[in-house]
Amino acid sequence: MYTRDPIFWRAGAVSSLTVMVAILIALTVNTIGVISTGGANVPPYTVINQAIGYVDDDSQHEYVPTIGGSDPLFGHVYDEHQAEALIREGKLVIQSRACLDCHSVFGTGAYFAPDLTKAWLDPVWRQMWEPMTQTHTRADAMVAFLMEPDKYPTWTREMPNLHLSRDEAKAVVAYLKWTSSINTNGFPYGFQADPDTPKGKQAALR
């Protein structure tokens, strides 16, 4: 019978692979468009000049990022090239220090330390690390913490000092501000963004 003939199943394997790979390629072309910077879900790097929030969107029953009015990072407005260079450096720092072998971004990485997807929006900066580092903005607190995390421990697990220069720390902060603006289909669920973030953005639902 044909079902006992290897040739039949060989043809089956080849054709199922072909069909699936064809679909995968089509979806890949579409997805890359959506996730490239400036695509539907991923804002351009200049989004670091704007206020970012994260709210529960009732119409979609999920949390979505919001992008509002101007909120310059480190009091500076970055043009397209500067923003791209800064974010590129941030990524290189994240890779060279292997941050994702303790942390995760978009939930991928390691589980020893918190997920960083929305770290930029975390209320903990204002509540805890701004006073500890004696800084007055979230961005400055993050820079201070990232440069010397061993000086500001909060519980038993400490982040080691990975010897980030000030520029490297700033680049990482920019990177995390950018990741917090990406639409991740509602992950992380229920994340309460810092209510202290400048107004206007909550309204500016994309």
């Binding site: 006992r4 003939d5 290897p6 199943w9 060989r10 089956g12 394997a13 199922s16 692979l17 699936m20 790979v21 679909i23 995968l24 579409n30 997805t31 959506v34 996730i35 539907a40 879900n41 991923v42 978009f106 939930g107 991928t108 990406i182 639409n183 991740t184 289909n185 509602g186 992950f187």
Partner: peptide, 30 residues
């Protein structure tokens, strides 16, 4: 060999697009 081809066919038929279980929350479309 017949059995191997069956396995390969089924593993690839489900596993190729199964990659989508990693694309839920990283910015990719719904």
């Amino acid at each position: 060999e017949t059995w191997l081809y069956i396995e390969v066919a089924l593993v690839l038929a489900t596993g190729v697009l199964g990659i989508g279980h990693h694309y839920f929350w990283m910015g990719a479309p719904k």
